[in-house]
Amino acid sequence: MTPDLIYPAAGAGLIGLALWRLATCGDTLRRIMALNVLAVGIAMLMLAAGRETLMLAAGRETSTLAAGRDTLTRAAGQDTPQTAGAGFLQAAADPVPQAFVLTGIVVLVAVTAALMALAERLGARDGD
């Protein structure tokens, strides 16, 4: 298994898992969680595809890449100590899918909050 395949496989696995759960369980909280897992899987596929792009372009290293790596190294020292060690980190990926995923995360938390609010209203009525 090459590294290029590991993360797409994880993403596809998450998607399959989430879809299976959605289609077999009627519990509200579980369904909301399955939808979250589905979104995570999609994000992983997208980021993996974005990384592959840069791996292919690694030969002709662009300024983006350099800037990304520089800043990334700095950030690593300050905010993510648990992954310290610059050699361990990959080159910065294509920024556009990163932006997509970032947007997707924020959108998803909003929809999740709405779903939870609805589910709780329904649940509260059940208890009455």
Binding site: L19, L22, A23, T24, C25, G26, R31
Partner: peptide, 10 residues
């Protein structure tokens, strides 16, 4: 049975 709907989507 919302899961049926999800199965249909799938």
């Amino acid at each position: 049975r919302p899961e049926r709907g999800a199965l249909a989507i799938l």
